[in-house]
């Protein structure tokens, strides 16, 4: 690693001030950033650790019935505390990486990084959640802007994510067994006004909505509603773990499984 300082402010206001320094980077749980630093792919002058910000940790219900999760909340906490209100989201969090990773990694860190194979972006997009930062609220449909790219500005941090709670939902991940990332993962969420389907791990453009499947499932919420629907292999990730065509096929399979499992 290149050398840098680490500071650990106790309030969001102090963190934002520290992030205004030249070449400062926020550090969430570090489960992606630390390996990146080890590869010398990043050379910050100072890392501003967000782990001391008690005000952005925890899970609660808002007055209008949404599930609000603090940006600094660890996966292990979401797995436990979202289980009663939004079981599909809790199950997703409880299946990220391995237990030791879930004890460090945070929802805000995962969303800010927007890895094309990360699990959380699919839940946020399929739920039509709102990403709340230190300065504004961003709708999920505007937040994700392609692989490792988001609407966040420099020095802006995710303080909360607000999830409308669906009637039924499920996440199905076809796991890449070595990294435990999603080779392809599909989150299906059924709301009173329609179904949303978000796919992670498959596309070179990062997480995306499969709108044809949404339309079919909104008129009939059943795996057979998807019969004959496919996504094109163009633009799908092709690597040593699977071709684009394989991933495109997985999108269909995992969507059907998610619909069948939704509860």
């Amino acid at each position: 690693m290149y050398s840098f300082d680490v500071v650990r402010p106790a309030t969001v206001a102090d963190a934002i001030e520290a992030l205004a320094q030249d070449e400062a980077l926020p550090l969430g749980g570090g489960q992606t950033l630390i390996p990146t630093l080890k590869q010398r792919l990043s050379s910050p002058s100072v890392l501003v650790s967000l782990s001391g910000l008690a005000e952005i940790q925890g899970v609660c219900k808002t007055d209008d019935g949404k599930l609000a999760i603090g940006g600094g909340t660890k996966h292990v906490v979401v797995a436990r505390e979202a289980a009663a209100d939004y079981p599909a989201l809790a199950a997703l969090a409880g299946n990220i990486g391995d237990p030791a990773v879930r004890n460090r990694g945070t929802i805000g860190g995962s969303l800010a990084n927007n890895d094309p194979s990360a699990c959380y972006p699919s839940a946020v997009l399929a739920s039509g959640a709102t990403v709340v930062t230190n300065k504004r609220q961003i709708a999920a449909d505007d937040y994700f802007q392609g692989m490792f790219t988001t609407a966040l500005d420099e020095g802006e941090i995710i303080t909360e994510v607000r999830f409308p709670i669906p009637e039924k939902a499920a996440y199905m991940k076809f796991e890449q067994p070595a990294s435990r990332f999603a080779l392809t993962g599909v989150f299906v969420a059924k709301y009173a006004d329609g179904v949303r389907v978000a796919v992670t791990g498959a596309s070179e453009g990062g997480v995306f909505r499969w709108t044809e499947a949404e339309a079919a499932l909104s008129s009939k919420f059943s795996p057979d509603a998807l019969a004959g629907l496919t996504v094109p292999a163009d633009g799908m990730i092709s690597d040593l773990h699977g071709t684009g065509a394989y991933r495109a096929h997985l999108v269909g399979v995992m969507t059907k499984r998610a619909v069948a499992a939704a509860h």
């Binding site: 680490v6 550090l27 570090g30 489960q31 390996p35 080890k38 030791a100």
Partner: peptide, 29 residues
């Protein structure tokens, strides 16, 4: 491994298992 994969470095911080190769000492203050 030093890449967060093998788990040989697991320790407990405040009672929770974490990978010591993927946490800075400054954060354990």
């Amino acid at each position: 491994c030093d890449t967060s994969q093998c788990g040989a470095c697991v320790i407990h911080v405040n009672g929770e298992a974490i990978k010591a190769c993927t946490m800075f000492a400054a954060e354990a203050q």
